[in-house]
């Protein structure tokens, strides 16, 4: 791919890989939550990297003449990165911390009742 964002996409895929590997391989519950959090960061980085184009500026318009001049605006809007993935990731990060906190609350409650963080000990819900 020649879009110029290979480095970011590769980093994002690496984060997703490390996060999911932590979730599947580790037995410690807090480690698993850390893995989910890392994978979440990776997904966010991937979405923003897919909306980025080289040599374009942030989606913040700083020129008042653009309000009246449609021609300049058309030129300028070709020099701005995609604002939609950024807006989605903005809310996804906040949801991510809420979900992480909920998972950690369950971890704390499980530790209070079972006295362990080892996920292989929680076999009661298995069938």
């Amino acid at each position: 791919m020649m879009a110029g964002n290979e480095l970011y996409v590769a980093t994002a895929l690496g984060l997703i890989f490390i996060g999911l590997a932590t979730v599947t391989i580790k037995r410690n519950l807090i480690k698993m939550v850390i893995g989910f959090s890392v994978a979440d960061t990776g997904v966010n980085l991937l979405i923003v990297a897919l909306g980025w184009f080289p040599n374009r500026t942030a989606p913040i318009i700083d020129d008042p003449s653009l309000l009246s001049d449609r021609a300049t605006l058309a030129v300028r809007s070709a020099a701005i990165v995609d604002p939609v993935p950024q807006a989605l990731v903005l809310t996804a990060i906040v949801i991510g911390v809420g979900v992480t906190a909920l998972m950690l609350a369950y971890v704390i409650r499980l530790y209070a009742t079972e006295g362990s963080l080892d996920v292989s000990r929680f076999g009661r819900m298995k069938w």
Binding site: N5, Y8, T41, N44, V48, A49, W52, R56, T57, A58, P59, I60, V81, Q86, V89, L90, I93, V94, G96, V97
Partner: peptide, 14 residues
Amino acid sequence: LAAPDVAMTEAAIG
């Protein structure tokens, strides 16, 4: 990646 809003959110929340 030209996303200052997301960078602020990630630094403050993440």
